[in-house]
Amino acid sequence: MPWGVTSMAQSEGSPVIELSQVSYGYDGRALLNDLSLTLSPGSFHFLTGPSGAGKTTLLKLCYLELAPTQGRVTAFGKPADQLGRDGIAQVRRRVGVVHQDCGFLDHLPLIENLTLPLAASGQDTAEFAEDLRALLAWVGLEQRATALPPELSGGERQRAALARALILSPDVILADEPTGNVDWEMSLRLLSLLVELNKMGKAVLIATHDLNLIRQAKSQVAARVLRLRGGQLDVAGADL
């Protein structure tokens, strides 16, 4: 079962994603400045900060959609700038991403959107029919398998995005404002899903400005809260 197995390809404690003295800017404006971040197996991080601080940019650097203007990104022990396009594709199969806009293909029913990573990695989706049903039930979408993405509510889309991020049993989960479009009850449900995955050994990094969600999470898991401000990362303390 692809999503249910804890894949611990890395040795215990060895970082899955590592940003070393990374800077990023565009149009002459520095957005991130000389920051470092290490995501180890089983770690749980929140990334917070004001709008426009660069949270999404930092996540994009982690899943190699962007390349830093300075510094080095290492994914599963390999420098990102030496991976090549096929190497980047391989890394992305080990990184589950919940995008802010979910990133669905509107002409495909939900079930086919969920199996995109399987199809893209050359696996026969028919072999995973049972697992898919279990995954849909786990995120509470078993009745919506044939619905098209535009027919889904905000909460359903977020849960579906989480399900797709997990389909290849990734080693790390990056979520960009996963509770941005859902009510509090749904936010708690999504959070509990992520906590459950973290307990399976997966590294989790959630970008959010929802401080209530962070407080709620800290009661369930040993989460580290990072604050992005002025292009720098610092560890948030009791002022949350």
Partner: peptide, 16 residues
């Protein structure tokens, strides 16, 4: 382009 972008992000190789 959107289809290609999504496919790249879920780990599809260019040739696929």
């Amino acid at each position: 382009r959107q289809v290609m972008t999504v496919l790249r992000l879920v780990g599809a190789r260019d040739i696929f």
